[in-house]
Design a protein around this nucleic acid. Structure first.
Length: 297
DNA sequence: ATGGCGCGTCAAACGCGA
């Protein structure tokens, strides 16, 4: 199985890191190192988090970053300090809520804003772009899937429709047969192992049958859950609530995901969660999740 | 534990998040 091969490969990679035989992360820059690091981060307000974002970009040095919940219109997005760090910026914002963006050290091409399938949907939750590399194009999407709470409301119906539209768009993108990374805040807890206290999420839209079934349909299309492929065990989280000391108790959930097309999964080197930003002053309640693709092979 | 916390909003309580 391809997924098993990737899990095996990731174990080898981790062993290599532990024994010091693999290049440290800080040594990898641009595409010259042949590794492309792609991250996703629900920043929960880009203007409230801009200095923290700058610091994280400077240390983590990802090639591409998908942001969600920028909570800003396009004109208000603080692009200048990010461009000063060498990033190209594409945004799809709205006033007050939602909003997504893609940052890239190399130019963003074929930028598409909005998830196809419903012209009436005015919420800014999807942006997609292509980055060229010497080994061909990589398509990247920044996704902010609706929360859907509470159950039984139009909000949950909207989430279900949005997941159907996303699945349809996934089919279209997969037909291109190119490296594709669908990254973002999916607002889906895939399995009980993805929550510290799964029972506490019963009746929540993030853990509801329809959400988990949609997730399985995504995987059935042939997409690879990069974090799951590299970390088969439980206890890998990307979100901790601000309330009730959830971070201190590690009472987290995994809802930020990177789904890879077969052509991207073939290049998967490793994937992980960077928990460090969650422990700083005034953090987002989400922390970055990233994947590394070998674009040299 | 019905909330707790935090961001954004025509600016003071409120909507929204997960």
């Amino acid at each position: 199985m391809i997924a098993d091969w990737h899990a095996f490969h990731c174990v080898l990679e981790q062993d290599a890191c532990r024994t010091g035989t693999f290049a440290p992360r800080g040594a990898i820059q641009g595409y010259t190192g042949q590794l492309m690091r792609i991250a996703t981060w629900n920043i929960n307000g880009v203007k409230a988090r801009i200095s923290q974002l700058e610091g994280w970009l400077a240390s983590a040095r990802p090639n591409i970053v998908c942001l969600q919940e920028i909570k800003s219109v396009d004109e208000g997005f603080p692009a200048a300090p990010l461009e000063a760090l060498g990033y190209n910026v594409a945004t799809h914002g709205q006033k007050g809520f939602n909003g997504v963006a893609i940052l890239s050290r190399t130019p963003l091409e074929d930028i598409r804003r909005g998830l196809p399938g419903d012209p009436e949907d005015l919420q800014s939750r999807y942006i997609e772009a292509v980055v060229s590399t010497p080994r061909g194009a990589v398509r990247v999407a920044s996704i902010y899937l609706p929360n859907g709470n509470p159950l039984g409301t139009d909000k949950f119906a909207y989430k279900c429709r949005w997941m159907e539209r996303l699945e349809a768009h996934m089919r279209d993108l997969l037909a291109l047969e190119e490296p594709l990374v669908l990254a973002g805040d999916y607002n889906i807890i895939p399995e009980p192992a993805d929550a510290k206290e799964p029972a506490a999420w019963t009746g929540d839209a993030l853990f509801q049958l329809e959400s988990r079934a949609a997730w399985r349909r995504f995987l059935s299309l042939g997409l690879t859950d990069a974090i799951r492929a590299c970390h088969p065990g439980p206890g890998v989280y990307s979100f901790w609530d601000y309330q009730a000391g959830a971070w201190q108790k590690n009472n987290g959930i995994r809802i930020d995901h990177l789904l890879l097309s077969p052509q991207a999964a073939d290049r998967l080197v490793t994937a992980d969660v960077d928990k460090s930003p969650r422990g700083t002053e005034k953090p987002s309640d989400h922390t970055p999740v990233w994947v590394e693709l070998d674009m040299g092979a």
